[in-house]
Design a protein around this nucleic acid. Sequence first.
DNA 1: CTGAAAGCGCTTACAG
DNA 2: CTGAAAGCGCTTACAG
Lengths: 396, 396
Amino acid sequence: MRFGSVSVDNVDVFVRSVAPMGVVPDMDAAGDDERVNDAVPDREPERSRPTQVSAPPKGFGKAVTLLDVAAHAGVSFKTVSRVVNGEPNVRPETTAKVLVAVDALQYRPNQVARNLRRRRSGFLALLVPHLNQPYFAALASWVSHAAKAYGRTLIIEETSADPEQEAEVLDALASRLVDGVIFSPLVTTRDVLRSRMMAMPIVTVGEHFEPEEGDHVAIDNVGAADAVTEHVLASGRRRIAVIGREPGEGTGGQRWAGVIRAHDRRGLTADPDLAVPVTYYGRAEGAEAMGHLLSRAPEIDAVICFSDLLAVGALRTLREHGVSVPGDVAVSGFDDIEETRFTAPRLTTVSPDIERLATEAVRLLVRRVENPQVPPQHVRVPFTLAIRGSTDAAQP
Amino acid sequence: MRFGSVSVDNVDVFVRSVAPMGVVPDMDAAGDDERVNDAVPDREPERSRPTQVSAPPKGFGKAVTLLDVAAHAGVSFKTVSRVVNGEPNVRPETTAKVLVAVDALQYRPNQVARNLRRRRSGFLALLVPHLNQPYFAALASWVSHAAKAYGRTLIIEETSADPEQEAEVLDALASRLVDGVIFSPLVTTRDVLRSRMMAMPIVTVGEHFEPEEGDHVAIDNVGAADAVTEHVLASGRRRIAVIGREPGEGTGGQRWAGVIRAHDRRGLTADPDLAVPVTYYGRAEGAEAMGHLLSRAPEIDAVICFSDLLAVGALRTLREHGVSVPGDVAVSGFDDIEETRFTAPRLTTVSPDIERLATEAVRLLVRRVENPQVPPQHVRVPFTLAIRGSTDAAQP
DNA sequence: CTGAAAGCGCTTACAG
DNA sequence: CTGAAAGCGCTTACAG
């Protein structure tokens, strides 16, 4: 074996030791698939010997500063500063000279120095529970775009839905590292949040609760859950299960309230025994909850899931049990992640306007950073109900 | 209507104008689902009147500085600096006094000032094409964790797979905004990358190509494609299609080379006419490519997709055409995103060790930031092949 | 073990 | 229209 050899050789060695070996059964933790290649002798990443092809860069040079540009252009460094910042009161010829020097020296202002003097960092932060949940990935993507549009750079932090981490990250960011925070709280209490809002501009997004004291952006969760429930009831379903119910005023609580309201309006009663809680709004949890429902309440004819991931899990369990969707059971989700257009059948879901959510959150935050005194605003972002094959056999 | 009223009222108004309206058919761009609620009169987000409940914070106070702590503790600010940075040569009693003052004043060092003086920002950046592709979301999540472990803060930037944006973002980051960049290039050429590497520490991840001059982390793509092809060939399939082939040395090119190699080893020939390119490694593109394949080459018995998203799209098209998987056609993917465990059937896929990829990339970058002179290293990260129901009816 | 000085690269506030 | 001074809040390099 020539493991640990140079890069090109490694390719050969690595593959020769793997591909032709055929399938080496090795059940993973979930016990649901075989894996080959786990038998590779050295699981440590292979590191190449340094390539001798070309010399590495000899360091990254000394930074070009305003003074350098000023010397090159034959003006004071203050004038260069004016030009770079697009301030008025510079003669066109002077501006031209400076721009030539800027270009010649490839000058780029040192953001750190600029921000120290301006007494702000130019950074905004987004705090989400899990970046690799599709909903939060989409949110992060839009918030990042919106921040850029406001000339700010976005820092994204994950809190892992852990109350201590949520507080810790919030405190770390308070070190003048960011000018403000967009926060999607999952477990932080109202009081903790309130105390942090004293120290730093914070805009909350999502449905954990609406802090009266601060800026907040969300869709109307009660209304959205009401709308999806109404749709299911309108199709004649009456034994409606729910996955993702939570006590209290959080996401699951608000959505459950919407389910109840839709029932009430028709003089029906939402059955709390058919509403199961989960520890996390993920695929695995949806699959598991669906399993419980099928064994405890086989008579259900609809399942309203409080996230798309839960619904994806539920769909798999239903499929594995040979239950027809939407024939036997209708299924719906929340969030309208792209995956819902590729499930079998495609998933009916609540589709929030995430782009708007992101844009409004950044707008509110920038507004507060620039003027901490403005009264708090609550923005409600529109949603639509995307009706697809999982609740309506006439749809694809 | 009481639109634009205070928050609590809005909830009612909003819902009364929507949920009871029932379904308002409104085909979306893709033409594949109905939507309700698009008829809400005012599509602008609703903004509440400022809440009068409690006064907003009166600004966020003046920052506590080293000087304030020094005055409070009765020492020089330099001593406070020593304590805060854990430097030696401070008497225990002095340390204690300082810590009391730090605590009393809730002092937090100003990172911007610190970084200006230290001549580095403490930030690393990750450049990915699209954050809401699950593979990149997972990568971002792991890189963020790894960066934190090294005491760095991560900035995540999207390039939208646009060559100009890739270059622009790279240049913007060069403004001393970040100490180094982890870059997943999609379209940037070798020359452009080389020039940027002169200006700033850059570690490339993924398979676009392996820059000889710089640090690089990736799995063995040729080997991985070889392994998955070998698995499909071993099950007796011979008419093997490929989705995601690309010319050149990029991801699709390397993986196609692996497909060829696996065929060659058995004395077979990979059919380039069955290998279709795509504009993007997404679900929609996979669905479309599969449609073309079915009409042009209905005899195929396997489809090797160069990403999981492509495979998810292909599965939907196959399902819609009534083609049995894996009965008629075996399907495989690349990346092992969580979604692949919930497709029907579950998807066989190449599973890279993303956590390792992320950790190694950060390690290499931090190393280069601290010593720009070190010779470049290429790290190859292990992968496994997850064999599931889409290629093997015996698997779930 | 502790402190006074200088300076990171800019912008702010003021003077001409 | 242009510039000299001061200072953002720290750390570095030096002196005691």
